[in-house]
């Protein structure tokens, strides 16, 4: 067992883990962060996407020990402390960018990452930006719309929503 310490959604957790523990299993099973889900074995589906030190990664393809000392943000940590939704969350709701919702946490986390890098993506750029996230329900069109709507809202506001959440 190895001792790991990480800040998840603004709270520091220290635990003993087996080195083979995947970050996503640590989040779900040790920390109760079940908002982040597992959809595949091969890093294809992106359902488990979280931010590791501010960058989107697939938490099923990161060992918990690798996140030692890191800041992790999950879908549960992006809304403001008062519950105000992150603009990307809000846009997914408004544009009907989800149906069953299983891919949604990963999709939202990947989209936030994309918008940090490209604040005004075209339709094609959004599609390529979320190519690592599979959705079986929506056909993606409303997800693309949602990301573009969120882009508009984010570029219009000075706040940096990623860090106004529980991480602050």
């Amino acid at each position: 067992m190895t001792r790991v310490s990480m800040q998840v959604d603004g709270v520091t957790y220290t635990d003993e883990v087996e080195p083979r523990t995947l970050l996503v299993h640590h989040l779900r099973e040790a920390l109760g962060k079940v908002g982040t889900v597992v959809g595949c074995d091969t890093s294809n589906c992106g359902a488990c996407t979280v931010h590791l030190d501010g960058q989107a990664v697939k938490s099923c393809t990161v060992l918990a020990v690798q996140a030692d000392g890191a800041e992790v943000t999950t879908i549960e940590g992006i809304a403001a402390p008062d519950g105000t939704l992150h603009p990307v969350q809000k846009a997914f709701h408004e544009m009907h960018g989800l149906q069953c919702g299983y891919c949604t946490p990963g999709m939202i986390m990947a989209s936030i990452d994309l918008l940090k890098e490209n604040p005004d993506p075209s339709d094609t750029e959004v599609r390529e930006g979320i190519e690592g996230n599979l959705c079986r329900c929506t056909g993606y069109q409303n997800i693309v719309r949602a990301v573009q709507q969120a882009a508009g809202e984010l570029s219009g506001s000075a706040a940096t929503p990623e860090t106004t959440g529980a991480q602050a």
Binding site: K33, V34, E76, L85, H93, L98, T104, P105
Partner: peptide, 19 residues
């Protein structure tokens, strides 16, 4: 109408069986 279901799904407060 925007969906009532979304509130829990976009915030990760969902009850999947594996949870």
């Amino acid at each position: 109408r925007k969906r009532k279901e979304d509130a829990r799904l976009i915030t990760g407060r969902t009850t999947w069986t594996d949870n």
